[in-house]
Amino acid sequence: MKFRKDLSRPEDTRLNMTAMIDIVFQLLAFFIITFRITAQETDFTIKMPLQAQGSPTEVIPDLIQVTLRSNESRNIAAIEVDNMLTQDRFEGPDMYNQLTNFVERTLAGNGDPTTANDVEVEFIIDSPLRYRYTIMAIESVSGRILPDGSTKKLIEKIKFRNQ
């Protein structure tokens, strides 16, 4: 006697995974190879309209001029500052901190803290100076990192005097 095949039992169907695993590993390899760990990039904003050049001492009441002096090895030699009332010259390893202090004193001297936003810094830079020292100076006038890790903002308006 011939028994009928039991149709209720499903057949053991197995998918062939080989192709999928192949392509998945290729994708994985692609992403691993193209992956790069880089530090985040940040920006300093500089607005320099064309009409501002050539007339650096025109009516800007709150202007701090910062001159960066370079030495023969293109490193920073000195920072000269002028806020139209006082001039100073900073040298040595602490010069950037002194620059921040000077900016703070100038802003405090203005009295009204709301006018601090109007104060502008104009940089006059020796051409050969390494760019990193310029960025350090911009950082010094932009703000200060307080001991608790917070940031105290100082100057936002920064421009360069064209050579």
């Binding site: 020796d126 051409s127 760019y131 990193r132 064209n162 050579q163």
Partner: peptide
């Protein structure tokens, strides 16, 4: 800008942009 590039080169470039 490269950290060791001359600041003057960047300033000239900015002036060219202003033009």
């Amino acid at each position: 800008g490269h950290e060791d590039s001359k600041t003057g080169d960047l300033q000239r470039l900015m002036a060219k942009c202003q033009e």
